[in-house]
Write a protein that binds this DNA or RNA. Structure first.
Lengths: 234, 234
DNA sequence: ATTATCTATAGATCTATAGATAATGC
DNA sequence: ATTATCTATAGATCTATAGATAATGC
């Protein structure tokens, strides 16, 4: 989702039937962006390869130059969505000198903001039944690691509370589900553009992080301190 | 999802090619049950009408005797999932003599248990893109009412806190998303039967309700009192 | 020679309808 | 006569592959 093509003109290969691309994205990234929008808008199974390709400015079959199967597109998108959060989680776990509550705040805020920001609400796809397939083992593994990081921080904050696994699940559900509801209601009957809700991405991140700390059992003073310190950790 | 057929034998109509039904359910309910399982297992779009019908013991076309279109099956399922929670919510809102925290506890616990219990994880379908269509306006309306009830109780408990709408979204996300994560992880690579997680349904309901009260800002004593009183309200 | 794209299509579905049929009910 | 089911199928897809083509690079 990052690399750009070196030369806008002077392109190798047969020209596109629909004219050259407007965007600065590489063709592969154009496909990913188109798929992200359509998958989250209409669902994965309901989105045809033709729709994806044509939104990317290509003919249906040309997409297969970049992805061997439709599943590969979804897998790539999902992996690219967890990965930044997982990397941040790993970094935060290592900073054992910092307040665990501040670290949990930073992780939750960044994770929620990431899910809220995108053009596309990929978080809503996390629990898609399709994602149970073999092809998505990589994504599921990364998400499990992210969950474990949340669990670790939660344990540092509240080591004695029972039902640790269950509370960790609820915490993850709060982050992913909460953002999904916020986005979804924001979109409402509105006109599909932008990250939903009338809420700013940072606002949602902060609200989710605060809610996460409430689940973790922090009182108001602890939450306010964690928010202040957490902003420094990002 | 309730009515049973009066006489097991002495059935009108051409006999089924696959033999008579084992279950006590009406044919329509057999279709609903089959669809619920398959939709949540494989996704709505990915589930064919043939698969649904045949799991219900019918030929593909026979299903259309009970539902004019595939969407109608999903709509029926979704509506039947929110409705009990919505009814409880309405009843609880009316009981103004009771502690709001206890009422919120009761609503969240029942809602979560309902979502957790079923053979099928219909809560995971709530945010399905397909559900945005016209046909699902009824379901979406009911869910919006349920959300409003949560918001009302939340307001009674913590009238002064800002970000009311946002916190209400997060609360709904916690209930729906939390249950989805719990179920999903429970299923894991396990063998699809039962309500997932190794957790009991009542346990999950109580854990979710406790988490909801944490979001609402109740301290430990208030939560324990609310749980005690809330159990009486169901 | 290499590349990115195209056109064309095989093969596999999938939904929903039309119309027949095998029971019971009267 | 009414009902619940069946068989058969039209028409509309949809994914993925095969093979051609129109650029640039050397």
């Amino acid at each position: 989702m990052v690399a750009q093509h070196p030369r806008p003109s002077a392109r190798v290969g047969r020209p596109r039937a629909l004219g050259p691309s407007e965007s600065q994205l590489s063709p592969r990234d154009e496909v990913l962006a188109a798929a992200a929008e359509l998958f989250t808008e209409n669902g994965y199974a309901a989105t045809t390869t033709r729709a994806v390709a044509e939104r990317a400015g290509l003919r249906q079959a040309s997409m297969y130059h970049y992805f061997a199967r439709k599943e590969d597109i979804l897998a790539t998108l999902l992996e690219s969505t967890v990965e930044p959060s997982l990397q941040l989680a790993t970094a935060l776990l290592a900073r054992s000198e910092a307040d665990p509550a501040a670290r949990l705040w930073a992780l939750a805020a960044a994770d929620a903001a990431l899910l809220h920001r995108g053009l596309y609400n990929l978080g809503a796809l996390y629990q898609l039944p399709e994602v149970r397939g073999e092809r998505f083992a990589g994504f599921r593994g990364a998400r499990a690691e992210l969950r474990a990081a949340y669990g670790e921080l939660l344990h540092l904050i509240a080591p004695d509370e029972p039902g640790r696994e269950l509370r960790c699940d609820l915490l993850l559900g709060l982050v992913e589900g909460g953002v999904a509801v916020v986005r979804d209601r924001g979109r409402g009957n509105g006109d599909g553009d932008g990250a939903g809700g009338g809420y700013g991405t940072a606002e949602v991140g902060a609200a989710v992080a605060d809610a996460v700390l409430r689940l973790a059992g922090c009182d108001r003073a602890a939450r306010e301190a964690a928010a202040l310190a957490g902003r420094e950790l990002a």
